[in-house]
């Protein structure tokens, strides 16, 4: 387990860069954290490390799936409630590609997602400070 303590947005992005650099080419990352914890912010770091344009990063809550270049896919399960809805997304097709699939709000569907997924947790610790743990 690795831990990062950041005190502003830039440092949170930098932590995302660090984490993404150490990832296998093909993997699933479950990004956990409350509303406003900084999930979109850390994703900008992932984009930077994986050769995508970080200014393209925004919340996929409504749009469900964002692709940032060939190596990063950003998924948000916030709006989904049933297993049936989960399956209509067809995430398996992304899991079979050489890319990092970052999944937000995965806890509702944890049992359906790959067992070997990497978990990144981001927590608010006052002001702009964040604690990030990688498991």
């Amino acid at each position: 387990m690795r831990t990062f303590e950041t005190s502003n947005e830039d440092e949170t992005i930098a932590a995302g860069v660090e984490i993404a650099k150490g990832l296998p080419r093909r993997c699933v990352v479950l990004l956990e954290g409350n509303l406003g914890a900084g999930k979109t912010t850390i994703t900008k770091g992932f984009a930077r490390a994986l050769g995508a344009d970080e200014t393209e990063v925004s919340s996929p809550t409504f749009t469900l799936i964002h692709e940032y270049g060939p190596r990063l896919v950003h998924v948000d399960l916030y709006r989904l409630e049933s297993e049936r809805e989960y399956w209509t997304l067809g995430l398996e097709e992304y899991f079979d590609r050489d890319c990092v699939v970052l999944v937000e709000w995965a806890s509702k569907f944890r049992q359906l997602l790959p067992k070997d997924a990497i978990e990144v947790r981001i927590e608010h610790r006052g002001g702009d400070g964040r604690r990030i743990t990688v498991d």
Binding site: L64, E81, S82, E85, T88, G90
Partner: peptide, 10 residues
């Protein structure tokens, strides 16, 4: 919560 019943199959 929304019940989107979304995506290609729908």
């Amino acid at each position: 919560g929304v019940v989107p019943e979304l995506a290609s199959r729908e």
